[in-house]
Computed example of a mutant assay.
Amino acid sequence: MKSIMFKRTYSYWFLVPAGIVYLLIFLLPTILSFFFSLTRWDLVDWTFIGLENFRMFFREQSLAIGFQNTLIYAVVTCFLKVVLGLFLGVLLTSKLRSKHLLRSILFFPTLVSTIAVGIAFSMMMHPSQGLINSALAAIGLSGPDWLGDTKLALLSVAFVDVWKGIGFAVVIYIAGIVSIPTDYYEALQIDGGGGWHKFWSIIVPLSRPATHSVIILSFIGGLRSFDLIWTMTKGGPGFTTDLIASIIYKQYQGGFYGLSTAGNVILFLIVAVLAVPLNMYLNRKEVER
């Protein structure tokens, strides 16, 4: 009995390093964020002010458009990553000869720094000297001001986000599609089913766990997005591409540390309120299946 207890205790000690890292990097900063959101603080001193930071944050002039932009950005990037990820996942698990090379090419943007991607696409989307509009001009088309047009700027950044993140979605879909037992395909072939039946009746339903993962990761990533927006537009023109995260950063730049911390807490709660029910709904659908 003592030997069994010793083995159990011994194995738990291996969890201690991970527990310490989790405590220092995630749990402790989270608790401190909740505390400092109730204070007016700088780098050396703080004063407790209760919920005043939250009241000020909700009176922020651009908050309404920031919340709207955040939802639009998250939904658009999530939807495109799911649709394109599934399509490319099917393509790259087919008998295509160059599929291994294409997998590497698609995944490469995921490895590149988001800041570098933002700077590169900002140059490419320049209205007069950018590569995209120059290519359009070469075939007789007039390109728009991708990042200066209030109607196009947010969607332009969203498409760049999809370009950068689609490789990760494709990898998840490839893993999900490859794990489908071949018995289903053989049964479909015996029944005389074609490529469309294979896709709609086998791949789509049986790759649902992969779809679930892509939806949750992409949606949360879209809600928390900041670096690409800030690199490409800094929330402009005006406030038309401001997300909640960029509003928080502007407050931090202005020296309102308590206010920006309260904004981070609010963003955390928004992500939790939207993502947790979505995750539960997708899990329930998967169990029902």
Rank of each mutant, 00 (worst) to 15 (best):
V171M: 12
W46L: 02
S3L: 13
S142K: 13
V287G: 00
G85I: 01
V112C: 11
W41A: 04
V117Q: 02
T150S: 14
G236D: 03
M232W: 10
L51N: 07
K95G: 13
L267M: 13
L102V: 09
I49E: 03
F219L: 03
K198Q: 11
F108R: 09
R224V: 08
S104D: 04
R224H: 09
I229S: 04
V287Q: 13
L84M: 14
L88R: 04
N283H: 08
Q189R: 13
F159G: 11
F219S: 02
D149S: 15
A116K: 09
A153M: 08
T241H: 01
D42Q: 09
I31R: 07
T233A: 10
V170L: 10
I166G: 02
V271C: 13
K7P: 01
A138C: 07
Y257P: 01
T70L: 09
Y249F: 15
S218W: 03
F57W: 12
I72F: 14
D191C: 01
L155H: 11
I202M: 09
V16Y: 07
F108D: 06
L24Y: 11
N69M: 10
I266F: 10
Y173P: 01
P277D: 10
H100A: 14
S213D: 02
L206K: 10
K95E: 00
L147C: 11
A120Y: 06
F239K: 07
P144S: 14
P127N: 11
G167I: 03
I248E: 02
T261K: 05
P277T: 05
R103D: 06
V75K: 07
K7E: 13
I115M: 12
W196K: 06
S3H: 06
S260K: 04
M123I: 10
T241L: 00
G258D: 01
S3E: 15
F87I: 15
K198N: 06
L188W: 00
Y249H: 10
L92I: 05
L15D: 11
L154T: 06
P181H: 14
S122P: 02
L282D: 05
F121A: 01
R208E: 07
L84C: 09
V16F: 09
Y10M: 15
N283S: 12
A245W: 03
S62N: 13
D242A: 13
L274A: 07
V170Y: 02
T240C: 08
Y184P: 03
L92D: 03
F268R: 04
F14T: 12
G130W: 06
L71G: 05
L136A: 07
A18L: 12
I174Y: 04
S98G: 00
I174Q: 02
L23V: 14
I248A: 03
T211G: 10
Y173F: 14
